[in-house]
Design a protein around this nucleic acid. Sequence first.
DNA 1: CACGGCCTTTCACTGAGTGAAATAGACGCT
DNA 2: AGCGTCTATTTCACTCAGTGAAAGGCCGTG
Lengths: 257, 257
Amino acid sequence: MDAQPGRSVTSKVLALLDAFTPASPALTLSELARRAELPLPTASRRVAELVAWGALERGDDGRYRIGLRLWEVGSLAPRGLGLRELALPTLEDLYEVTHENVQLAVRQDVELVFIERIAGRHAVPVLTRVGGRFALHATGVGLVLLAYAPAEVQEQVLAAPLERYTPLTITDPGRLRRGLAEVRRTGYAISDRQVTMDALSVAAPIYGPEGAVVAAISLVVAQHRADPVALAPLVQAAGRTISRSLGTSYGSRRSAG
Amino acid sequence: MDAQPGRSVTSKVLALLDAFTPASPALTLSELARRAELPLPTASRRVAELVAWGALERGDDGRYRIGLRLWEVGSLAPRGLGLRELALPTLEDLYEVTHENVQLAVRQDVELVFIERIAGRHAVPVLTRVGGRFALHATGVGLVLLAYAPAEVQEQVLAAPLERYTPLTITDPGRLRRGLAEVRRTGYAISDRQVTMDALSVAAPIYGPEGAVVAAISLVVAQHRADPVALAPLVQAAGRTISRSLGTSYGSRRSAG
DNA sequence: CACGGCCTTTCACTGAGTGAAATAGACGCT
DNA sequence: AGCGTCTATTTCACTCAGTGAAAGGCCGTG
């Protein structure tokens, strides 16, 4: 090796998995090698082992995809399907009442990950994808997760440039900081056309058994429909219901590093 | 090492992931080491790397769980959430019409894996779990997936002892073989109290773009309700609808090894 | 049939990973 | 406090798993 003498084998294996993204779920061996910054023979060897185990699958087109075995193991993540399954009945209730998009998300470092989405066919189309990531400073769920995040996470987000998605996106750290205080005061967050000009969202926190915010739930509605403040109690109630069900069966965990 | 001088590092990492099962989603380091058949220091080292990447998370109780990052990567599996998302609208339609449990499953080797389940609160409780595995010879989805599996998979299942779940479970290879032929002839499968005495299921195949069966859909109803044969066309129609949506966007893949 | 793209295998070398033992915590008991 | 137990991490010298370079398949294609 030249630039990196002595990267651990484990990190190479994980780098290969990292190469797969929602934008590129199928890759050839050479693409994999390039993205993982590995020489081709090494990539070939590691990939062969991953395929043998079922972490990757090789399609008829010769490209590699994430394998079902890995999906299976991943589904054991308590903040993944575990949280999803506990929250699902409540998400469905909220959908039944409103017939709008319902989203469930958790924070991972300085981003959020969408765990579940219930999207009525008549509701506003949203850009998100289950399993996908997004910045914390624009969406309703993001604002909630950020507002209740540890101080060092907030500072990290506030210190970095805040990407602008629409003219209404908050990109000023000071304004964002005041917005977060407001979220903590009211117990809900409203993102009004800060992600797309078509939609606004109302989000509320979900608490784990230890009292920390572990997830957020939101309702995404078309920009012209309904008063978001009027919807907040509904979303908050759903958040509380889920919090309660977590209290009984959801295992404890540390906030994501 | 004693028994296995020279297991590859990759296989050790994967063995650690393998240690997590639906029955044991949280493990201490020593439990992990024992299940993966690794000496404790080695397990400690590999686990530390997995935690750093996000494949595992350490809870407040000191036990390790599957991390969100792994769930995220796993959600990219085309036969996992990918298939799920394409099928979901149709599954919901089927649920709206019947208000019974709807299940979606794919075959992985000689077992099936449940990808999604829509369970009305008033429907029969089922034993399965999204992300969970089950044998192929008893459930409706299993019979469909087995009936259309490659010959070598069928022979492998028929050669092994068929586990009995209820007095009605088919455990005779000859009878199972005739049952599979019947499934192929009619295009649907009925499992009548072969998993539990409370429920029966009606299942139909889902075809990929190449014409191979890639998944199966089923309706699980209480044993005393409705004629299963009468439900078959409904389930088959849903299967065809999903097959059609796969035709357009579902990437090609080989059958699981 | 020579060429080029793409992947796998061979071979000798070497440093990442190893086991054994020492060390460091965490907790309970007296 | 002092000791025992259980569990996890670190140290250290050794060695085998993983490595790069090059050669070898295996296609399609001109």
